[in-house]
């Protein structure tokens, strides 16, 4: 198999402890069309702002926050579908941020970072059968064809609990759970080291969700993949993730071990978020209700806490000084002036 593209890289041990090391990453979009001879700089949407975190080998990192908090953009940055404005993305031994997203499509490391998309129905080409969809990255990234390809497709499908009889079906002929399995099989086919899971169970019924989550845990153990897991469902994040990153308006407001963060959140935003999750025991924490909407992400005040104005405990200081992430016991961090050690 000399024709195989890439992934014959540095041995993993040589790459150090962190698979992914993201530092001071920012992504700003100009609002509207940039004019060729325009005088004023266009207004900028700060989608991701000064985000730093690490992902250890074999670890699962959860990414939570409201819609518009920048988690989707962050996912696209990590998966190298979009180029960052500033900052670094270190993957293994390589700095990937300088590599344009267009060029990364044929990079040897492309196979090592894969995504499971949110709506498996929408992310599978409607003109492709399940087998075509799973085969696509194997053909492109691993240069497989013929029987070897068929074998790898069937292997990936089997790993994901997808009956081989379903491989010839089109996405619209599959159930939601089966489509989710196709999406996962497609992503693990090239044997990535990092799998970004973007709301993989959001469209599924709870009874199916359980099987998909259990499948993801099994794959993590058998294949040794590291996950970045994005979800709006905190209970699901808690089940699957070792650590969690909470984002608000493009910035990280809190990180730490998932259970600790959800059981005793430090940041006032995290407290409101956790309190808003409906509970089966019906106990509501109405006192912590977060009212209002997030502020505009367009050219936000660089010296004000992004949560200022919606925060139940904010003071004048929060409008004048951007809180930095501070360390707390138990490997936790929070960006708030008024958080005391838990």
């Amino acid at each position: 198999m000399s024709g195989m593209i890439g992934n014959d890289p540095t041995p993993r041990e040589a790459e150090g402890r962190y698979l992914l090391d993201v530092a001071e990453l920012s992504k700003r979009f100009p609002l509207g069309r940039r004019r060729l001879f325009g005088k004023a700089a266009p207004a900028m949407v700060h989608a991701v702002d000064d985000v730093s975190f690490t992902l250890a080998r074999g670890e699962t990192l959860g990414l939570v926050g409201e819609s518009g908090c920048g988690k989707s953009t962050l996912v696209r940055l990590i998966a190298r579908l979009t180029d960052p404005t500033t900052g670094s993305i270190r993957f293994g031994n390589r700095e990937l941020s300088a590599l344009p997203a267009k060029a990364f499509a044929r990079d040897p490391d492309r196979a090592r970072i894969q995504i499971v998309f949110q709506d498996a129905g929408e992310s599978i080409n409607p003109r492709f059968t399940a087998a075509d969809a799973i085969a696509d990255p194997l053909r492109q990234l691993r240069g497989l064809g013929g029987d070897a390809l068929r074998e790898k497709v069937e292997e990936a499908a089997t790993l994901c609990g997808l009956p081989l009889a379903l491989l010839d079906r089109f996405p619209h002929q599959l159930s939601g759970g089966q489509r989710a399995r196709v999406g996962i099989a497609r992503a693990i086919g090239p044997r990535p080291d990092l799998l970004v899971l973007d709301e993989p169970t959001a469209a599924l019924d709870v009874s199916v969700q359980v099987t998909i989550l259990q499948l993801l845990v099994r794959l993590r153990e058998t294949l040794g993949i590291s996950y970045v897991f994005v979800s709006h469902d905190l209970n699901v994040v808690r089940l699957l993730c070792d650590r969690v990153v909470v984002m608000y308006l493009g910035r990280i407001v809190e990180t730490g071990p998932a259970r600790a963060v959800f059981d005793a959140p430090l940041h006032p935003y995290t407290r409101g978020l956790v309190a808003a999750v409906p509970r089966l025991d019906g106990l509501r924490a109405d006192a912590l209700r977060l009212a209002g909407d997030p502020r505009s992400p367009i050219d936000p005040d660089p010296d004000a806490c992004r949560f200022h104005g919606r925060c139940p405990i904010g003071t004048g200081r929060c409008g004048a000084e951007m809180p930095k992430l501070r360390r707390f016991d138990g490997g936790r961090e929070a960006a708030c002036h008024y958080v005391e050690a838990a």
Binding site: V206, S207, Q209, V210, Q214, N235, R238, L239, L240, L280
Partner: peptide, 23 residues
């Protein structure tokens, strides 16, 4: 009962959740 057993909660483990077999 099975629907409840499949619903993630703010406590508990993934191993404790049960899917509902069949369609």
């Amino acid at each position: 009962r099975r629907l409840l057993a499949a619903t993630p909660t703010a406590a508990g483990d993934l191993a404790e959740l049960r899917s509902i077999p069949g369609n």
